[in-house]
């Protein structure tokens, strides 16, 4: 299989990637934060589609369940709870934001400089190659790719991500990180519950710390 040929996988990849760029721009440019949240959900689903195209099924499932499911539900709940959507934020561009946007373009330039040659080669192969013929002749497994020199190609087998290999990697090789993640999640649950509690909550008579203090103080007096 020619490494530079355009397979049907690449066409789906282009569609998903382009749509995720559009919805990613929607996150930044939406004036209401609820619209930003919905655009972010769309972006996460499209990236999960990219993961599924790359046959990273575990990560694609996690992306849908954890990001698009749990975290975005939290965001939408907080947006609706605060109810600050009455006046949409005006996108005002001042002098500092021009500075920061130019910084972002500079940053992207540095990033692009790193893989400029590969991008140019790939784009040339799309423009010059008769990719529709190659598309029809692609009968091999899509996920295989060829490495090595062009005269001596080496076929690399698929990356097989089974539950066994995932469990082996998480619970044997990375077990310290796994325990650390558990402690981090516990600490964040406690911290979030502490930060979000209401200080002026009405206490029922005879219950709670304040009532206990009063009872204790009155008994000592």
């Amino acid at each position: 299989m020619n490494t530079e040929s355009l397979s049907i996988l690449n066409i789906f990849m282009f569609i998903l990637g382009g749509l995720s760029l559009v919805s990613g721009l929607g996150v930044v440019l939406s004036r209401k934060s609820l619209n930003s949240a919905l655009c972010l959900v769309a972006t996460m689903f499209l990236i999960a589609g990219q993961f599924a195209l790359m046959r990273a099924d575990f990560i694609a499932t996690l992306q849908v369940m954890l990001y698009a499911g749990a975290i975005m539900i939290l965001f939408v709940f907080v947006i609706m709870l605060l109810g600050v959507e009455k006046d949409a934020e005006k996108l005002s561009f001042s002098v500092p934001s021009y500075f920061s946007i130019s910084f972002v373009f500079l940053f992207f330039g540095i990033l692009f400089f790193g893989f400029r040659d590969g991008i140019i080669t790939s784009a040339k192969s799309i423009v010059e190659g008769s990719y529709l013929d190659q598309l029809e002749s692609t009968t091999e497994p899509i996920n295989n790719f060829v490495t090595g020199t062009s005269s001596n190609p080496v076929l690399v087998p698929d990356l097989v991500v089974t539950p066994k290999s995932i469990g082996n990697s998480i619970l044997v090789d990375q077990v310290v990180s796994f325990q650390a993640i558990g402690i981090l999640l516990l600490a964040s649950i406690v911290g979030a519950a502490f930060l979000a509690q209401t200080k002026k909550a009405p206490l029922l008579p005879g219950r709670g710390l304040k009532a206990m203090k009063e009872k204790h103080g009155s008994s000592t007096n």
Partner: peptide
């Protein structure tokens, strides 16, 4: 995945990060 997909995905993720 072929090299085309690699470069395209890297480009997409760089643009998304910059956004």
């Amino acid at each position: 995945m072929n090299e085309l997909g690699l470069h395209f995905n890297l480009l997409i993720s760089a643009i998304l990060f910059c956004i």
